[in-house]
Design a protein around this nucleic acid. Sequence first.
RNA 1: CGGGGCGUAGCGCAGCCCGGUAGCGCGCCUGCUUUGGGAGCAGGAUGUCGGAGGUUCAAAUCCUCUCGCCCCGACCA
Length: 566
Amino acid sequence: MRTSHVLIPTLREDPGEAETVSHKLMLRAGLIRKVAAGIYTYLPLGLRVIRKVEQIIREEMNRAGAQELLMPIASPAELWQETGRWSFYGKELLRFKDRHEREFCLGPTHEEVITDLFRREVRSYRQMPLNFYQIQTKFRDEIRPRFGLMRGREFIMKDAYSFDQDEAGARLSYQKMYDAYHRIFTRCGLTFRAVEADTGLIGGSSSHEFMVLADTGENTIVYSDGGTYAANIEQAEVFPPTEVDAEPPRPLRTVQTPGCRTVEEVTKFLNTSSAHLVKTLLYSTGGNTVAVLVRGDHEANEVKIQRLLRINGLELATPTVVAQVTGAPVGFAGPIGLKDVRIIADHAIKAMRNVVVGANQIDTHYVDANWDRDFHVEQFADLRSACAGDPSPKRDGILRMAKGIEVGHVFMLGTKYSETMKATFLDLHGKECLAVMGCYGIGVGRTAASAIEQNHDPKGIIWPFPIAPFHVHLLPLTQSTQTAKVTAQLYDDLQTAGLEVLWDDRDERAGVKFNDADLMGAPFQVAIGDKSLAEGVVEIKTRKDGKKVKLPPAQVVGHLTEARPS
RNA sequence: CGGGGCGUAGCGCAGCCCGGUAGCGCGCCUGCUUUGGGAGCAGGAUGUCGGAGGUUCAAAUCCUCUCGCCCCGACCA
């Protein structure tokens, strides 16, 4: 393709709206343009990358036995009401009414629609197992879209849904997808890791997320140094402590702690450590307030809390609510004398003796409090996030932390949807059975963005070969007829050899072309100019390592077909 | 939704505090020169200063309301 025939509006400077590397580079290299918050146009170059990722996904899904179909973007409220997600999904579900006042939503995911298809069309075990997938634009009215394609409101997703006769079959389908995902992300040139994950709004029994390892990732993952365990920090199980503090209980006392509201202030003032303090966090959940106790140096894990309480929607209580419940300003809440509030605690609390807690009174704390003597805990559970250094749940060493970008997620759904939507089939014995389901998503744009996060340098993008918008960037540097002739010949020959070529035929200076080429990130650049042609050669640069080779034009095709990763 | 910030030329920004009728760099157009890592000189075009009200002789600047966008949190492919 010739540069003069395609819109590639590169930018010299970083756009003000972008923060992360991939977002900046996608804008600068002319891949995308924003239309509204979280909504983008894919420009020709960006679309080529998207299509490549889609094609890799398509090939691997087909190879794994899934069949492609395409569901509508708009779906009727009734289907969502059937599973209860019309109300459960919340504001993220963009709803609207048609001219007949019938309610619809833009599909954020398609369990309802596909399950409806299954129950209408599939009767017999003979037709199973089935795995349907689509590559389609989704809409989720995200609270805060950000980082360009990394978290859009409108985004392209591959979603697949499997239907099996039983658990064993479903596990096999799940494993096939798990393996396919490994191949997909490997082919996309990504460094990634599959981790155990929470199932969130989709629901189901278990799931894995595929995390691209990158410091800019929004997720924290933990993994064991023994090598077999990896999980999202939301999910990672924390063992109850094995040893209880042996200190004999001392009498409960109150102390004045003027102006000390944070863990840090209180422990510093009392000259103790945060491991001897119990944080009392008040959460609001649909009108109720819950007190959650965690050790001062631990992080409460809101996903675990929600799972224990079987709710979706948890917020730290506002200062007003805190004042109502505790009778004191924020910073002095404690479990002693707290009324009309459920109190749940992390396992770690059980092992603590003679702790510091808030006294529900301004500028006052209790010291030497003991849970079995001074306050009541309704339930102990795993409510905190794992930390680096915690033992691995698989008992293969200790945990370490890393940041990741979630590019794919596979779920074992079980019969959650087939049950509520009565998706059944007749088995071998003529008995009516519920289909056992799985669902499997990949963020296409996010995968492309992740590739940039992992593959760039100060000059621009360094595309992994399989998803590069072009393989070779031809850069004629001088205006001579000789240069033009060699360039045109190379353009034809390279394409004939099956390489995708971008020919920078603009009337620009060499520096501009080099810089734009580095920015756009094609794996190979071929510079053609009078200087090197005088020696009978052109110059091939590998974008990744910057290495340059001089070769006669006739040998370029051979060299590049050779250098091309398979 | 809570907290912070920003809307001025296609892009990046200054001007706003202290009101006097809009500027810089890049890009764009024309000409000449230049031509292997973001050229030089000369000339030129481009703004309802996000929008609506208000205060004032006078508003980009002060006040009120509104819309959009970005960043931090809850959400997630």
